[in-house]
Design a protein around this nucleic acid. Structure first.
Length: 198
DNA sequence: ATACCGATTAACT
DNA sequence: GTTAATCGGTATA
């Protein structure tokens, strides 16, 4: 499988830089031949020396194994027994880091997203939250470890709408247990975008 | 084998 | 602002 140009760009970045690089990129899922596309508008970086990260201190278990694998692969885990959260692994094997996709602006297949999330047709933000991204795009642990830069059911694409975006950052959500690391500004979003989670 | 808990959401008051 | 839902992962025994 030929690694594409996008992967080359991605693979050369630090995890925090990659989290910002992902903003504005297009997330695509093809589940049962049904296509959903959306623009990534919010991400969070998780570093190996960061207490909020599942692989803190090089911790490796069955769940966190994908983070220890090659970069550009998906790390999907279940949170609160309900939500499938999508992450993209970064860095070389041996440096387990990842980026959480927190919110996506729907571009294609919105009806399907609304159907999957049981939201009324009046709702315009079916993927504004990490659990919702998983639900709206039909992501389950079946997609764990899948190569995001390959031609798979889940992939990332360049946006062709060339617009300049300005990026904001701040502390991550729901990581109070991480002590001082909870204050690190590793959450990134597109300034003024209406699809960022609340 | 058992106990505790979370990178959340929706539906309350 | 508060809380129930819900279950796999992880630690402890």
């Amino acid at each position: 499988m030929r690694k594409n140009l996008l992967y080359k760009e991605f693979s050369e970045l630090s995890t925090t830089a990659a989290a910002q690089w992902l903003l504005g990129k297009i997330l695509i899922s093809r589940v049962d031949g049904l296509i959903c596309k959306g623009k990534i508008v919010e991400t969070e970086a998780y570093l190996h020396n960061d207490k909020a990260c599942h692989s803190f201190g090089n911790r490796k278990t069955e769940r966190t194994a994908p983070m220890h694998g090659p970069s550009g692969h998906a790390y999907v885990f279940l949170c609160y027994g309900i939500h499938h959260l999508l992450n993209i692994v970064t860095q070389e094997e041996g440096t387990p880091e990842a980026i959480l996709i927190r919110a996506v602006e729907p571009l294609e297949g919105i009806e399907l997203m609304l159907q999957r999330t049981n939201k009324p047709s009046t709702n315009i933000r079916p993927a504004s939250g990490p659990g919702l991204v998983g639900k709206a795009f039909g992501i389950t642990r079946l997609y764990n470890n899948l190569d995001i830069f390959g031609n798979n059911e889940l992939s990332i694409e360049e946006s062709f709408a060339e617009t300049t975006i300005s990026i904001m950052s701040g502390p991550r959500i729901g990581v109070d247990y991480a002590g001082a690391d909870a204050l690190l500004p590793y959450r990134y979003w597109i300034a003024g975008n209406n699809y960022v989670s609340r």
